[in-house]
Nucleic acid binder design. Sequence first.
DNA 1: ACTTTTATTTAGATTTACCTAAACTTTATT
DNA 2: AATAAAGTTTAGGTAAATCTAAATAAAAGT
Lengths: 221, 221
Amino acid sequence: MMNLSIAEENYIKSIYKLEEEGQEAVTTNALANELDTKPASVTDMAKKLKEKQLISYEKYQGINLTSEGKKAALSIIRRHRLWECFLVDKLSFSWEEVHELAEELEHVRSEKLINRLSDFLGNPQIDPHGDPIPDALGKMGKPRVQTPLHKAKAKRLEVVAVSDKSTALLEFLNAKGIRLGTQLDVIERYEFDNSIELKIRNQPAFTISEQVSKNIMVKPI
Amino acid sequence: MMNLSIAEENYIKSIYKLEEEGQEAVTTNALANELDTKPASVTDMAKKLKEKQLISYEKYQGINLTSEGKKAALSIIRRHRLWECFLVDKLSFSWEEVHELAEELEHVRSEKLINRLSDFLGNPQIDPHGDPIPDALGKMGKPRVQTPLHKAKAKRLEVVAVSDKSTALLEFLNAKGIRLGTQLDVIERYEFDNSIELKIRNQPAFTISEQVSKNIMVKPI
DNA sequence: ACTTTTATTTAGATTTACCTAAACTTTATT
DNA sequence: AATAAAGTTTAGGTAAATCTAAATAAAAGT
Ligand SMILES: [Mn+2]
Ligand SMILES: [Mn+2]
Ligand SMILES: [Mn+2]
Ligand SMILES: [Mn+2]
């Protein structure tokens, strides 16, 4: 596997993410938006990554990772999520603080370092946001059947992941007492704005917007 | 303190190192050599760092860090050495493996991260090569009176640091059983090539070159 | 089918961090 | 003091990663 620049790694990771979110072919605009850059820059980089055989790309046809590209993406994601575990488990950061830091730490490329880190952490399977961690060979468990709260049918649910890692959302969840493993009772669903009234065991009920519930992944208990 | 690029940080750190080694003003050539780059590139960067007020520099007169520059250098060195401690103490790397990795990790700039890391490690005072670690305020203990083995007078000595961090030297020292804290008996000094015959407690005596002894810092016991 | 809107690409610049080759200073040697 | 050698800077260029503005293609509306 060849050496990628930090910029190239960030592109690969974002392409992986958008593909995972369902995009058949990742569009120039979607990538520009995800990476907070301009479409023209994406087109430039697309040519370069195609040259390196990490993506398939034809003018106006969007982008897809090749199997080489997927391998690279999984390796970067593994680093990212292990560093997040380290920060939370060992340095007592909270889940809304670690994404930005891991965004930088993930670019230190050393197999040996990352495998030792994994051992040191007890080879964790999920990161602080509930996302699965690829193993040293790039295997990432099952695709994880993620039901977002706004589509869940059961009344009693457990939080298994959050899909948006922004500080804004995570701080909101902190304030409401929602974290990984939290058990929720759905009291009411309001059709008007798709808001949901929730209750956590000994606490008073509260309401969250659809925007929020879309980003909370749950499983029935 | 402004934001420095990785390249700028590496320059600042190298200037600090060369100043520490005694250079009144750091020369263009010395820096180019230290950073494995070309003198013309050093001149370019010198202009930029002067602009940012991190160094004082006049054409043909060499380079010196300003107090701002020193502050920046100490912060980078703190990060470098704490990561080295982490790698050795927590991930069981050996001392010859950690310099290159720390060379990358040091560029993740977060006060909070580095202070938590320091706490996590028990606020160590010296790194795996015997070098002192600046505290959060940039204080670095005493300048440490480092006697290189080739100049030491006493017969019984303890290894307190190594000044060259190359894998080559450190692996050589590993092979000879020399590490931090090792106690050495000087058996003989050969005037011809300044080689030194040494003995470590239960082991057979062996001889090291001046090249090596220059890089082993000792104190009498 | 034609037109408007949206998405994407190209053309041409910019910034950072390098480089080589040539010019210029400083220092050392006759 | 004059010349040679060594060190340093300038001039001009390259590659990566970005940008804006203009051109072109695809999609959506009528
Ligand atoms: Mn990143
Ligand atoms: Mn995460
Ligand atoms: Mn470095
Ligand atoms: Mn060190």
